[in-house]
Nucleic acid binder design. Sequence first.
DNA 1: TCTTTTGCCTAATATGTGTAGGTAGTCTAG
DNA 2: CTAGACTACCTACACATATTAGGCAAAAGA
Lengths: 190, 190
Amino acid sequence: MARAGLSPQVVVRAGADLADEVGFDEVTPSALARRLGVRAASLYSHVGGADDLRTRIALLALDELADLASEALAGRSGKDALVAFAGCYRDFAREHPGRYAAMQVRLSPEAAAAGPGGRHADLTRAILRGYGLTGVDETHAVRLIGSVVHGFTTLELGGGFDHSAPPPDRTWSRILDGVDTVLRSWAAPS
Amino acid sequence: MARAGLSPQVVVRAGADLADEVGFDEVTPSALARRLGVRAASLYSHVGGADDLRTRIALLALDELADLASEALAGRSGKDALVAFAGCYRDFAREHPGRYAAMQVRLSPEAAAAGPGGRHADLTRAILRGYGLTGVDETHAVRLIGSVVHGFTTLELGGGFDHSAPPPDRTWSRILDGVDTVLRSWAAPS
DNA sequence: TCTTTTGCCTAATATGTGTAGGTAGTCTAG
DNA sequence: CTAGACTACCTACACATATTAGGCAAAAGA
């Protein structure tokens, strides 16, 4: 009887790919087992169950996106960094909708701590070096960037922009212009 | 045998309440039937199935929020309207997390058309009357407001702001200040 | 009161989740 | 190169959920 050569890594990656194709909600042990050509019970040697599978996919996606964002930020600062960082998130969501959806699951405290949760905040903070924001201003700015990028990306992915005329790309760059302006105004002593 | 007095409305409202208590993902025909004191099969006289139930909860939530936002906007304009509108969304999400999550489901085209999908865009547009934005600028502005409000709300609800110091309320008002500034700058001929 | 409607039921099927235990490939020691 | 340990995958099972079909009794209308 030939073996499929599974391992936790292989299973989780296949789960992430499946999520991108059919949606994160459709990623179930049985569906994943079908795709991998094994029986559902066989997956329980590699992942703990449906919840564990979803959590691991989320952590994988967070890690992958953090890698991409880290690379995109290298050597950039100020608005250049902001645009690169935001574009990274948006592109990731469009190319990997299932992984992006996975990232939204509320992680258990231990999973969040052990995982790459803090990496994203650190990366966002790195953008702000060019803006000279410190202390609470820095945190406000991290939250502003996160809100705008995540909000736009989610709405675009959900089809919220499909019914009105101008292409989302135009809106995207105008919004980033606006964020840049706001961040620079925050840098000035208020 | 006493009857439970169900109807599509009663079932959907109970489903929405259940979503607020235990999370939208946990709203299943069987869980809802348990709460209503009937057998799961009995629900199928009132809703089409699990998907139909979720869709109807989403439409109910969209309608309820549109009512609240409409009321909040009455007699306001400009930044006052913006703050009231955004606060309405944020408060709704915090008081009714399950309903808010339901609103994010991708509706089928017919459900979106028949439903209150357009009401929200119209309400957002109403804010902009005080800013003098027209044409594509208006659409860009609608998308900006939607992105910021939805993004912040989602992140806050997901606990994304729990680990850093300043209270989210402070960030919220600073972000709205920023949006107001951007909208006013867009109003000037670019 | 008689009839129609319908709300809720039981019964049954298909599918999904998760556990227990077995079998057969694969790896390591000598 | 063989003996034993390990483990990837299996079958079988118990249980929960989604959904359909058909029946009975309560409610509503004539």
